[in-house]
């Protein structure tokens, strides 16, 4: 079978498979997801006080222990759950809002200006201080974090979606669909969304990595869910107890976990983008 016989999707996949960076990133993400799902099988939930405080990494405690004697390895494993769950759910929510707003702005011309102004205004504000304010008001919980992060991440998605959808709206098949009397909803669903989704693919990945960083930042500042562990929470506790400057293991391992997740998502999106861009094959 020659390259010409393949569908675009197959060609993207075969180009993607040849990129080692993309494959490694995908494997890392799968591994992290596995850790998140199987956390209870890997380590007991870290709680209470332990006898060995601030022990460096050893055979008994792979990542050492913190100032109240809890196992840092267990914290990182359980943190994977919350960090990934918040990252993924916040980005899914942001993508849905961004898709709706972006496509409406492109299709319903009258909405374009007000929605465009809204997106521009939201993008020009410093987001983290705003998220801090809202998260503090709403009270810390995993759900609050996901909603707050989504609430301030959709404008970026909306902008990308709008510019892509704007290129599709003037196409003849959209006019044809209008002429045959298709409803706006049908046209948006059948003609606009399929054209926009490939771009959203990259956007999903980038939004997820930004959401993971936002969650870590908010938890680090003390806005994490007090009843569960996330990587940012581990850093927050190290900061509060002062073990930050004395015991490197309390901060190194959660930091590495954040870096692994964010970097592999970013590289995955780069690899996907390269694979989709068939011109670079030759």
């Amino acid at each position: 079978m020659t390259v010409a016989d393949l569908t675009p999707r197959q060609r993207t996949w075969s180009a993607f498979r040849r990129n080692p960076l993309g494959m490694v990133s995908g494997a890392v993400l799968l591994l992290l997801a596995l850790v998140a799902v199987c956390a209870p099988l890997i380590a007991p939930f870290p709680e209470g006080y332990g006898a060995d405080t601030l022990q460096p990494p050893s055979g008994a405690h792979w990542f050492g222990t913190d100032d109240i004697g809890q196992d840092v390895f267990a914290q990182v494993v359980w943190g994977t759950r919350v960090s990934m769950a918040v990252g993924v759910s916040a980005s899914v929510l942001a993508i849905v809002i961004g898709l709706l707003i972006g496509v409406s702005a492109a299709y319903f011309r009258r909405l374009d200006t007000p929605l465009g102004v809204l997106v521009d205004l939201s993008l020009s504000l410093p987001v983290l201080p705003l998220m801090i304010l809202v998260a503090a008001l709403a009270g810390p919980s995993v759900r609050t974090l996901a909603v707050v992060i989504a609430l301030f991440s959709w404008p970026e998605v909306a902008r990308v979606v709008r510019s892509q959808a704007l290129a599709i709206v003037p196409m003849p098949f959209v006019s044809a669909a209008k002429v045959v009397g298709g409803s706006s909803l049908w046209i948006v669903r059948k003609h606009l969304l399929p054209g926009v989704v490939p771009v959203v693919g990259v956007s999903v990945v980038l939004t997820t990595s930004r959401a993971v960083l936002a969650e870590a930042g908010l938890s680090f500042l003390g806005l994490g869910d007090p009843n569960s562990w996330s990587w940012g929470t581990i850093l927050h506790k190290a900061q509060q107890s002062g073990s930050l400057a004395s015991s490197w293991w309390t901060t190194l391992f959660p930091s590495v976990a954040i870096l692994l997740l964010v970097l592999s998502t970013t590289l995955l999106s780069v690899a996907y983008n390269d694979a989709r861009n068939h011109r670079s094959d030759t």
Binding site: L213, G217, L235, T251, S255, I258, L259, T266
Partner: peptide, 14 residues
């Protein structure tokens, strides 16, 4: 690309 994926407090602590 790596630098853009860094978490600020991690860099600070490092």
């Amino acid at each position: 690309v790596t630098a853009q994926s860094l978490f600020v407090p991690s860099v600070g602590v490092f």
